[in-house]
Design a protein around this nucleic acid. Structure first.
Lengths: 231, 231
DNA sequence: CGATAATCGAATATCGATAATAATGCAATC
DNA sequence: GATTGCATTATTATCGATATTCGATTATCG
C-alpha cells in the first residue's frame, strides 16, 4: 500500500464498463430522463455508449437487480414503473428498519461520527447535482446506522434509499428540499447526542412519514401511471 | 388470452440457459457440494455445462445478486463465505419483518389459505429432496404473509429465506427436522385461525430464535470459517 | 541484499458475428 | 368471417475468438 493508493475509490477511480453504463442509465432513470415503461434495447444502448452488447447486457442485469428495470425473457428489458403503492411500501419498511438500526448503532456512535454526519447534511443541502445530493442524503443516514455493524440490515436500508430516489428526486426538483430540511435532520443527531434514543427514533418515523406525505401530494396531485412492471 | 395460457409458467416452463446454470450452481452451493471460498471460473463452468461463457457470466451475476457469490473485479467470482454473524443478522431481520408481515396479512387470510398452508407443511416434511423441502418451507411461510399485499416486504423476507438455506440445509441434513417440526409450525396457523394475532407473532419470534439456536449449536459446535467474503 | 522494474500467465472482459426466439401481419383454409 | 399456418422482422441470446487486466515471478539495478 503506497501513498498513491489512498486515492483509490476517489474521483480517479475508474469504473468498469458495465458499471459505467449502469451508472449512466441509472442517472437517466432516476432523474426521469428515461421514463418508466421505456424499452432499453441492448443494441441502442451499445451504440449510444459505443461498446458491444456484452457489457450492456451486464449493465442491464444490474439495473434489474436494483429493481430499476424489468426483464421480459427474449423480449428485452423495460424501465420499471413507479407507483404510489410501491412508494408507500418503501416508507413503511423504512419506518420499520431505520429505528431498529439506530437503536443498535447509536450507543456506539462517537463525537467525530456526529461531526461527520452534520458535515454531510450541509454538503447535501448545498449539492447542485441531484444525484450527488441523494447520495449524500443516504450517506448522512448511513453514518448514523453503520455502527450497528449489521451489514445485511444496512444493505436493505441502502436498497430502500436507492429505490426512493425515483420518487424523491422529481419532488426535490419541482419544489426544493423544504424550508427546514437541514434543521429537522439535525434534530435527530441532537437527540442522539443527548442520549435520547426514543426521541431520535420518534423523529425518524415522524420525518419519514411527513416527507412521504409531501412527496405523495407532490407526485400524485395529478394522476399518473400506477403499474408495477413495465409491460 | 385463451384457456391454454393458464398453463404458462407451469411444470412445462423451460428455464433459460442462464437460469438453468444458476439453479444448478445454487443447488451445489446450498447443499455444500461447492464450499464457501471456492472459485467459480467461467471457463470451467462453461465446459462443465457445455455452453459458452456468455450465459455462464449471466448465471454468475445472479448468484452474486443473491449474495451466494462475490465478485472480485478482473479476478473472478468465489462462493461467498457463511458466518455465525451473518446467520444471526438474518434471524434478527426475520424477527423484525415476519411479524410485521403477518399482522397485515392475517386479517385477510381465508379458510382455504389455511388449508393450503397446512398442506404445504406436510409436503415439506415429506420431501426427500432438501431443496424442495426448503422451497416448500418458504412457501408455507409465504402463504401466511402474501395477503399483506406488500411485494417489497415479501421480497425482502424471501431473500432472507433464500439466504438462510445455506445454514438450514446442512443442519437438516445432519440432524433432521426436529421432533415436532410440523406441530410447532401448525400452532402458528392455529393461532391465526383463532384470531390470536399476538400469540401467532409470539410463536413466530419464539420459533425463529429457537431454530436459530439449534442451527448455531449444530454448525458451530466445532469452529469453522467466519469470513464474510471469499477472498 | 533490498527495492524497483520488466515479463509472464491465468483469468476475466470485450468484441463482432451468428443463431434462436417470439410477436406481427398476411394469406390460405374451413 | 373467423381461425389456422406461415413467412417476416425486430430483438434477444449465444458463440468462438481476441483484447485486457492484474497478480506473481523473475530480472535488473543501486
Amino acid at each position: 500500500m503506497t501513498a498513491i493508493d489512498a486515492f483509490a475509490g476517489g474521483p480517479g477511480a475508474k469504473l468498469s464498463t458495465p458499471d459505467w453504463i449502469a451508472d449512466q442509465l441509472r442517472r437517466a432513470i432516476l432523474t426521469g430522463t428515461i421514463e418508466g415503461g421505456a424499452q432499453l434495447k441492448q443494441n441502442d444502448v451499445a451504440a449510444r455508449f459505443d461498446v458491444s452488447v456484452a457489457p450492456v447486457r451486464e449493465a442491464l442485469q444490474r439495473l434489474i437487480a436494483d429493481g430499476l428495470a424489468v426483464l421480459h425473457p427474449n423480449r428485452g428489458v423495460t424501465v420499471s414503473m413507479i407507483s404510489a403503492r410501491d412508494f408507500r411500501d418503501i416508507a413503511e419498511l423504512r419506518v420499520l428498519l431505520e429505528p431498529h438500526a439506530l437503536r443498535h448503532s447509536a450507543p456506539r456512535l462517537t463525537r467525530s461520527d456526529f461531526e461527520y454526519s452534520e458535515t454531510l447534511l450541509v454538503k447535501a443541502a448545498k449539492a447542485s447535482d441531484p444525484l450527488q445530493r441523494a447520495s449524500l442524503h443516504w450517506e448522512f443516514h448511513r453514518s448514523l446506522y453503520y455502527r450497528a455493524d449489521r451489514p445485511r440490515l444496512l444493505a436493505q436500508i441502502a436498497g430502500l434509499y436507492q429505490s426512493i430516489n425515483r420518487y424523491l428526486l422529481p419532488a426535490w426538483a419541482s419544489s426544493g428540499l423544504g424550508a427546514n430540511w437541514i434543521e429537522s435532520h439535525l434534530t435527530i443527531v441532537t437527540a442522539i447526542r443527548n442520549n435520547d434514543l426514543d426521541q431520535a427514533c420518534r423523529l425518524i418515523v415522524e420525518q419519514t412519514l411527513e416527507s412521504s406525505d409531501r412527496v405523495r401530494a407532490q407526485l400524485w396531485s395529478a394522476p399518473g401511471q400506477t403499474n408495477e412492471d413495465g409491460r
